[in-house]
Write a protein that binds this DNA or RNA. Structure first.
Length: 259
DNA sequence: TGTGTGTGAACATTCTGCGG
DNA sequence: CCGCAGAATGTTCACACACA
């Protein structure tokens, strides 16, 4: 199994309530709903409060204790599985970096839904696993490295858009959908694309498709219509127009010159 | 307060699809 | 292949917002 949920729950701790030192044989994610407390692992201490969480890894001795003045209320989920470690690595969580901070209230809601799963009789396990996946997905999103600033960030946008073009050129695609894939406004996307590459995204996409078509034209078993569809043009006539505009000759003439 | 990043609107230009 | 109309895209500018 990729992921198996072992157990889950919520604890409204009394002042100075503690657990451990103890070992676990599975991963255990805690999320602090309110209050504060202390988490210790490998000789390191972490003072944690609401909206933070911590991970306990298998075979690692840990100790945690609620604050005497403002004891925490936390919720947890224990799990393991062949993909558990990979998923946690994506979140950049391990025994050396066991603490995370949550933005918004999606994580809190995931834990609420996980606890609420017990009210389902037939779909219980699927629901539980589903919410664990959503929880890990959200933590992965939130753990994303801070965005680079200036040209570095712009280069990242352009790199991402080029990768998108290279894998989706054979499908119909608008510049707006491309910009939206990157998470930018289409106008701003066009501006930075032209700024960094010297040509607008539309022109880049057309040239990329025409270059791909040139390679396909060397295969005489393919018709012009098949090639036009293969590079994202449903209308062969439109494709021929564009091709002639870029290469100066029609696709047919280009092929004759090749063969 | 200045600067950089990003958005939204308006308008111009280019592209696309269709009929002849 | 041409011309047209509508759609899509590019350009420019004003503005908001975050941050130093």
């Amino acid at each position: 199994m990729d992921l198996i949920v072992y157990h889950y729950g919520m604890e409204n701790c009394k002042p100075s309530h503690s657990y451990g030192p103890a070992l676990r044989d599975h991963f255990l994610l805690h999320y602090i709903i309110s209050g504060s407390g202390l988490f210790e692992l490998d000789g390191k201490s972490y003072n944690l409060h609401a909206n933070q969480g911590f991970l306990i890894c298998p075979d690692v001795i840990t100790y945690y204790e609620a604050s005497s003045k403002d004891p925490w209320i936390y919720t947890w989920i224990g799990f393991r599985g062949i993909k558990a470690e990979t998923f946690l690595k994506n979140i950049k969580l391990d025994k050396d970096n066991p603490v995370f901070k949550c933005k918004g209230d999606i994580i809190k809601k995931c834990f609420e839904e996980i606890r609420h799963s017990s009210t389902y009789k037939l779909g219980y396990e699927l629901r539980l696993q589903g919410y664990l996946n959503i929880l890990l997905s959200e933590l992965t999103e939130q753990s994303e490295a801070p965005k680079a600033k200036g040209d570095g960030q712009k280069k990242n946008y352009i790199k991402k858009s080029i990768q998108f073009i290279e894998t989706n050129y054979s499908r119909s695609m608008s510049i707006e959908s491309l910009a939206s894939y990157i998470g930018l406004n289409k106008n701003y996307f066009s501006t930075i694309f032209s700024e960094l590459l010297g040509i607008p995204p539309q022109e880049y996409l057309i040239k990329y498709r025409v270059n791909k078509a040139c390679k396909l034209l060397s295969n005489k078993d393919l018709t012009i219509s098949e090639i036009s569809r293969s590079v994202g043009y449903d209308d062969p006539l439109g494709f021929s127009k564009i091709f002639k505009q870029i290469k100066g000759v029609s696709p047919k003439s280009y092929r004759q010159a090749l063969l």
